[in-house]
Amino acid sequence: MDNLMLPKRGMPVTIITGFLGSGKTTLLNHILSNNHNLKVAVLVNEFGDIDIDSQLLVSVEENMLSLSNGCICCTINDDLLDTVYQVLESEQKVDYLIVETTGVADPLPIILTFLSPELRDLVRLDSVLTLIDAENFTPSHFESDAALQQIIYGDIILLNKIDLVTEEKVKELETSISTIKQGASILRCENAKIPLPLILDIQRSNVNNYPQNELESSHDHHHEHDHHHDHSHHLEIDGFVSVSFECDRPFNVDKFQNFITDNIMAKVYRAKGILWFAESELKHIFQLSGKRYDLNTEEWQTPQKNQLVMIGKDISADNLRAKLQECIYR
């Protein structure tokens, strides 16, 4: 791979999520045996299912398989952070990191690991891919928190096994998914075969992509300014609620971090705001989409204050505001 194509900041990371049987392992095998000259490290919970072509296999260590194309496959030890460090420090030159979540998992903890201070300067979260088995996925899956979270966090939804169902069923699924995640990028595939440029190093995590990525799809952009009125028609139909919060005192940064991972935030799908932390002289611009969030800084040009708008489903505005009050620095 030409060095000029490598990202300027940190190794790109793609997280692959999806229910059991959706095709995650097939996709991983497809990526590992690719011939795009991309040196990939794949982190999995166990090797069991990975069917590496034996001709590709160079060596098997305790928790690492090395392949002749320069890729490696690594089992996640007890600590994801440790495993990532192990790959980053390995003698093998790796261009790209792919992490598979377990089929029943909520991807949030893994996403947060890559956004943590320990990793965010070393890696760049490129995208979250969610695989869906078109044959076996039914709207009742949406009653499962994990399935719902996987779709809400997914930057790209891969509808797999479309060869096993009718076009009508595929369209129904696409409609269901779009209801939950407006503006979702949905790609169809068979056997998890998808051109890798469509899913790797696509920089979907770029903060500029958030508006298209979440609730604010194109017909929704005019909602930016007056969230109290503009959102009402669109949000009430879907059961979404918009909550705003303002205060003239700074937050404590640790308390705010805890607030973001609090259970109450599980139903907040989109948030944005300007934050003032007691520990910092800078203005923080906050963006949250699904469970991915970004904090960028700039100098204050206006009086310091906290302003936040959150959009979610079945959320209590009073509870959210009370939790935010608790974040205020005392």
Rank of each mutant, 00 (worst) to 15 (best):
R9H: 14
D95R: 04
L65D: 06
D226L: 07
I311S: 06
A278N: 05
P109Q: 14
T102F: 10
D51I: 13
E326K: 10
L187D: 01
V123E: 05
V268T: 09
L67S: 02
S22K: 12
T26G: 00
S140Q: 15
T179C: 10
E135D: 10
L131H: 05
S127G: 04
G18E: 01
F137G: 02
E216P: 01
A271L: 12
G70F: 07
E326F: 11
I264A: 12
L81H: 12
V94T: 15
F47R: 02
G312K: 02
H229N: 13
S232I: 04
D254E: 13
T17I: 09
E100T: 03
I110K: 01
L131V: 00
L88W: 00
I202W: 00
L112N: 14
L56H: 05
E168D: 13
G103E: 03
K93C: 10
L81S: 10
T26V: 07
A147G: 05
L38A: 03
P7N: 08
C247I: 12
N63T: 04
G183Q: 05
L324N: 00
K161L: 04
V94A: 08
H219C: 10
E236Q: 14
N3A: 11
E62C: 02
Q55D: 13
K161S: 04
L97N: 01
F114E: 02
S144W: 13
S59K: 15
S59Q: 14
E167K: 03
A317G: 09
I151L: 13
S289W: 02
L320M: 12
I202H: 00
V40D: 00
K24R: 10
K171D: 11
S176C: 13
I157N: 03
R204K: 15
H36N: 12
